Lab assay of single mutants.
Amino acid sequence: KYTPEEIEKLKELRIKHGNDWATIGAALGRSASSVKDRCR
């Protein structure tokens, strides 16, 4: 489950890194597949 803060951070990282899920996941301390599924 993602907190509202994590979702905000995810949005920012998505703008910065696009679909680089590995980088976004690492920044959030989550797996690449987890953040990818969250963005769907």
Rank of each mutant, 00 (worst) to 15 (best):
T3M: 05
G18C: 08
A32S: 07
K1W: 00
W21I: 03
L28A: 05
E5L: 09
Y2Q: 13
K11Y: 08
L10D: 03
K36E: 15
Y2R: 04
E12P: 02
W21Q: 06
A22E: 08
T23P: 04
I15D: 13
T3L: 04
I7Y: 09
G18F: 03
L10T: 06
I24P: 05
A32R: 03
P4R: 12
I24D: 03
I15A: 15
C39V: 07
L28K: 01
I7A: 10
R38W: 13
R14N: 12
G29N: 11
K9W: 00
S33E: 15
A22S: 10
I24N: 06
K36T: 05
K1D: 15
P4F: 12
T3R: 06
I7M: 11
L28V: 10
G29E: 09
K9A: 10
G18T: 04
A32F: 03
C39Y: 09
R14C: 07
Y2L: 06
S33M: 06
L10M: 02
R40H: 10
R40E: 15
A32Q: 07
E6V: 02
A22P: 11
R40Q: 15
I7H: 06
E8G: 08
R14T: 10
S31T: 14
P4H: 06
W21A: 09
V35F: 00
E8R: 09
S33K: 14
A32I: 08
L13G: 04
E8Q: 12
D37T: 14
T23V: 14
I7S: 09
R14A: 10
T23H: 06
K36C: 11
V35I: 06
A22M: 07
E6W: 00
A26Y: 04
R30S: 07
E5Y: 06
K11Q: 15
N19K: 07
W21T: 07
R30Y: 07
L10E: 02
E6C: 00
K11M: 04
R38V: 15
G29P: 03
T3P: 07
S34E: 15
G18Q: 08
V35L: 03
S31M: 03
K9V: 03
L10H: 04
Y2G: 10
G25H: 02
N19E: 15
R30Q: 13
N19H: 12
S34H: 05
R14P: 06
R30M: 10
I24C: 07
D20I: 02
T3V: 00
T23E: 13
A26V: 08
C39D: 07
T23F: 07
Y2K: 09
K9R: 12
S33P: 08
N19S: 14
K11S: 13
T23Y: 04
T23D: 04
R40T: 15
H17P: 01
C39L: 08
I15V: 14
R40D: 15
H17V: 01
A26E: 13
W21D: 08
K1E: 01
C39S: 11
R30P: 05
V35P: 02
P4A: 14
G25Q: 04
K36S: 10
H17K: 02
I24H: 04
S34P: 04
W21V: 07
W21G: 07
L10G: 03
E8H: 11
G25N: 02
A22H: 11
R40S: 15
E5G: 11
I24K: 03
A26D: 09
G29T: 03
E6I: 01
G25A: 14
K9T: 10
A27T: 10
E8P: 02
S34N: 09
H17T: 01
L13W: 11
R30V: 09
I15Q: 14
K16V: 11
A22T: 09
Y2P: 04
S33N: 14
R14E: 05
E6D: 11
A27Q: 12
K36L: 06
E8N: 10
G29I: 00
G29L: 00
D37W: 04
Y2F: 15
L28E: 02
L28Q: 06
E8V: 09
S34D: 15
D20M: 03
I15R: 13
G18E: 08
L10A: 06
R40N: 13
V35W: 00
Y2M: 13
S34V: 06
I24G: 04
I15K: 14
L28N: 03
A32P: 12
V35Y: 00
